[in-house]
Design a protein around this nucleic acid. Structure first.
Length: 112
DNA sequence: CACGTGACATACC
DNA sequence: GGGTATGCCACGT
């Protein structure tokens, strides 16, 4: 289980991640005011299950966290491709689609 | 209480 | 690139 406070933060953060942009679990934790707690993000996303931009969260190496062939992996891949994110060799180029410093301005509404 | 296990990350080698 | 080690924390056993 995950604290409501954490869930709220994660929800708010996910809500401001633009289309075509992906963040890592560690970044999501960081942006949510929970540095060093990447593992908790997986739990949080599991708890939120589906109703948010969970598909824009990938591992720090650019790979999708789910096992290849799993339903979730396929679904996430599809949604990202629909947003214009290209995936080659089962991996995403974070230099291209990752979080960029200039995007921090849109976090000003989150106030942590 | 002590481990093992995760939608993980970083620092090494 | 891969492999190991450590940090992280909630949960199950």
């Amino acid at each position: 289980m995950v604290n409501d406070a954490v869930l709220t933060r994660v929800e708010n953060t996910l809500a401001v991640i633009p289309e075509g942009v992906v963040v890592s679990y560690g970044q999501l934790a960081d942006l949510s005011g929970l540095p060093g707690r990447a593992r908790l993000m997986g739990r949080a996303l599991r708890a939120l299950d589906g109703e948010h931009n969970w598909h824009r969260v990938v591992r720090a190496d650019g790979k999708i966290a789910f096992p290849d062939g799993s339903w979730h992996a396929h679904e996430q891949r599809q949604r990202l491709i629909e947003e214009g994110v290209t995936i080659k060799n089962n991996r995403i180029n974070l230099k291209k689609y990752g979080w960029k410093p200039d995007l921090h301005t849109i976090l000003s509404s989150l106030q942590y």
